[in-house]
Design a protein around this nucleic acid. Sequence first.
RNA 1: GCGCCCAUAGCUCAGUUGGAUAGAGCAUCGGCCUUCUAAGCCGAGGGUCCCAGGUUCGAAUCCUGGUGGGCGCGCCA
Length: 603
Amino acid sequence: MHPGSLVAAVARALHPVLPAAAGLTEDEVAASLAAPPDPALGDFAFPCFKLAKALRKGPPQIAAEIAAGLADPAGLFSRAVATGPYVNLSLDLGRAAALVLPRLASGEPARRPATGVRVMVEFSQPNTHKAFHVGHMRNLCLGDSLVRLLRVAGDDVVAANYLGDVGAHIAKCLWWYLDRLHDRTPPADRRGEWLGELYAAASNQLDTWEDQAQAGDVAAASELQQAKARTSEILHRLEAREPEIMAVWQETREWSLEEFAEIYQWCDVGFDRVFFESEVDEPGLKLVAEFLDKGVFVVSNGAVGVVNDEVKHMPFFMLRKQDGTSLYSTKDLALARLKFEEYRIDRSVYVVDVRQSDHFRHVFLTLKKMGFYQAERCQHVPYEMVELPDGPMAGRKGNVVLFRSLRQQMTSHLRKTWFQQFEGQWSPEEIDAAERTVALGAIKYGMLNRDVNQKIVFDLAAWLNLDGNTGPYLQYTGARAGSILRECGEVGKALDPALLASEAAVQAVTASLQEPQERELLLALDRLPQTLAAAAEQLRPSIVCTYAFELCRTFNRFYNADNCRVKPSEGPLLQARLLLVHAFVHALRETLAVLGISVPRRM
RNA sequence: GCGCCCAUAGCUCAGUUGGAUAGAGCAUCGGCCUUCUAAGCCGAGGGUCCCAGGUUCGAAUCCUGGUGGGCGCGCCA
C-alpha cells in the first residue's frame, strides 16, 4: 500500500479494532477496502464476509461490532456505521484533504524509489522499405507507455527498438526500384513513405501475377517466374554484401530511417538503443552452429531447429533454413544474447502483436535450454491488431491508413473544428503546438484506452469525434483547470505557498471543504498512486486511461457545480479549493505523462 | 485437427483478489451558457452479462462442456 494514501490511513485506523482471530494484516485490510456503490453510504467500505468463517458469526453482526468498537483518535472519520455485512466509513473531509493534497499540489513527482531492476522494453520494430501505418501506432504507443510506467515505478528502463532492415521485403522493394521504375527520384520531403509505396506496388504486382498464374495465365506465370528469380538474385547479392547493391540498400534504408526518426519525434517517443536485424544476422548463424555442436539444436529435413515439447501443437522451432540462411527466430536469439551481454538486463519485455505468441514462447524456451538464466525474466506483451471497418489492413486491399495520412487528417480536422477560432488571438506557433499536442493525445489515448486483448477497429470518422471518452476531453479538462488558476492569479487569488509547508495550516483551510463534489474529487485524486502501480505491475496502460477519464469526469462535476466555484470564493475556502485544483492539475499531468500525453496550456 | 484470444445496453467498450441495485462513451430524447473554457454538466430511455451445468453464504468474474467470431500452427517477418 502507499503509505500516504487514504486507503492506508483507513486501514491503519481500522486494523486495531478488528478481532485478532481474523488474523488480517494491515495490508490485507487495505486491499479489501472498497468503494460503496452509493457515495451517500460512505467513502470506504470494509466487507466482513471473510471474517465470518474464522469468527463463526454472521457478517452483519461482525460489522456491527467493528463499527461500535472503532476508536478514532486521529479524528479521521466523520461516521462509521454497519450496513448489513459492511462497515461503511465516511472520512472527515478536511483531515483527509490535509493528508492527500499537499504532495500533489506541490507538484512533487510520483516516481517510486529506485528498484535497482534494469528492464529492457523492446517495441516499435518497423521494417525499413515498408510503410508506417496506424497498426504500427498501437505498438509504438503501448511500448512507450510501458517504458514510462516502469520508470515511474522505479525501474531502470532501457527503451529499445529493433528495425527490420534485411530480408525478402527489401529485395522486393529494390526489385521494383531498380527494374520497374522510370523515375528513381524520390520526393524530397517523404522519401521513406515513397519507398513504402514502392514495396506495396511490388508486393501487389507479385500477388496479382500469382493469382493470374493460378488461373492459368501463361504470360503472368512467366512474369512471375522472372520476378521471383530477380528478387532472389537481389537477396543473394545483399547477403553476399556486393558493394553495388549494398550502396542502393544503404541509401534507401536511410530514407526509411529518416522517416521513422521524424515520426518518433512527432510522437514524442524516444529510444535508448536501436538494434538492427542486419547486426544480428551473422551472429545468429554462428550461434546456431555453436549450439548445434553442443547438441542443444538438432537437424530436421536439412533445417536446424530445437524441439520444445512444451509447445505441443508445434514442438519444432526452426532456426536455420535448408539453404543455410537465417530466420527471424535465428536473429531473435542473437538479439537476446546481445541484450543480456550489452546491458546486463534483469528483465526483458517484448511488445509484439499477439500472432507471435507461439514464436516468443519458443524463443524463451530455447534461451533457457541454451543456458540463459534471464530466460525466466523474458516476457512477451501481446496485443491485438488494429483493423479497419472492412477488415484487416492489407496492402492488396489498398485500405492501409498511413501514419502521415492519420496525422494530416487529425490536425486539419482539429484546425477546422476548433483551433481556427484562436487565429489572430494566439501566435501561430502556439496554435500549431497545441494542435499537435491534441492530435497526438487523441491518437495515443485511442490506442491505449482499449485493453491489449481487444482488437481496435480504426474508423477515422469515429476517431475525429472528440467528445466524451477521448484524449482531447482529458486535455480540455486540464486546460480548464489551468485557466482557473490563471484567472484567480490575475485577481490576486493565488495559492498561499505557506500551505505546502505546514500540515496544521493545510488542515486549517481544508476544514472548510464540505461539498460532495470536493469529496469525490479528493477520493479520486487519492487513487493515483495505486493506479499507476497496478498498471505497471500488469503492464496495462488501459488501467491508467480508465482512471484518467474518471478523474476528469469527477473534476468536471466539481468545475460545473455552482456551489464549488473557485474564483468567487474567499479566505480559507478559496485556499482549500486552490489546493484541490493545483492537486488535480498535477495529478492529471502525472497520469497523462505515463500515457505519453501532455496538456496544452490552453485550448 | 491442435493451441491462444474474444463474446456485457442499438454501436464501441470498462468491470481490481468472487461481494451491496452490472457501469461509461457514442447514438436517441429532454434540460443547463450575464458569473473559473458548453470538446463541458445534469436527467431519461435502453441488459437473458452467448448457452448449459458445476463450485458457495454469494458468480459478469472461478471450473467443466458447448455455440459463435478472430488469430496462430517448418524453411515469411
